[in-house]
C-alpha cells in the first residue's frame, strides 16, 4: 500500500496506542497523528489532511460525529470511521446518514486492518 496519513482521535491513550501499533505493524511508513479530543483534532486539520481518520464518539468537548462533520468540511477526501464503545443503533444510524463508517470496540487487529484497507 502507498504511504498514507492517519489521524487517530480518542481520549483513551491506550486505545490510541493500540490502534497505532496495529497500523504500524502493517504499514511502518505511514504517518500517524494522534489527538486526545475532537478539539485537538480540529486544530490539527489546518496542517494535516489525513487520508484516514479513526475517531472515538464519547470524548471531552465535541463528540465524534461533530468532529466528523468538521473533518468533512476541512478535508472532504478523508475516509472517516467512528470506532466506539457506544454501539447503540442510534449512533450507527447517524454515522451512516453522514457517510461515516462504523466499527464497535473492542479494538482488534482484524477491525483496524479492515478500516485501513477499505
Amino acid at each position: 500500500m502507498s504511504e498514507k496519513s492517519v489521524l487517530i482521535v480518542d481520549d483513551s491513550r491506550v486505545s490510541r496506542m493500540m490502534v497505532s501499533a496495529i497500523i504500524k505493524s502493517q504499514n511502518k511508513d505511514w504517518h500517524i497523528e494522534e489527538a486526545a479530543s475532537g478539539d485537538e483534532a480540529v486544530a490539527k486539520l489546518s496542517e494535516l489532511k489525513p487520508n484516514i481518520a479513526i475517531i472515538d464518539f464519547n470524548m471531552p468537548g465535541i463528540d465524534g460525529l461533530q468532529l466528523a462533520e468538521k473533518i468533512k468540511q476541512e478535508s472532504p477526501d478523508t475516509e472517516i470511521t467512528l470506532l466506539t464503545a457506544n454501539i447503540q443503533d442510534s449512533i450507527r444510524d447517524k454515522a451512516a446518514a453522514m457517510g461515516v463508517a462504523f466499527a464497535g470496540k473492542p479494538i482488534t487487529e482484524e477491525k483496524i486492518i479492515d478500516i485501513i484497507s477499505s
Binding site: 483513551s12 486505545s15 464519547n58 466506539t84 454501539i87 443503533d89 470496540k105
Partner: peptide
C-alpha cells in the same frame, strides 16, 4: 477503557 467498553456494550444492548 475496559470499563467503557463493557459498560457501553451493556447499556447499548438495553437501549
Amino acid at each position: 477503557e475496559i470499563g467503557n467498553i463493557i459498560l457501553n456494550a451493556g447499556l447499548s444492548a438495553i437501549a
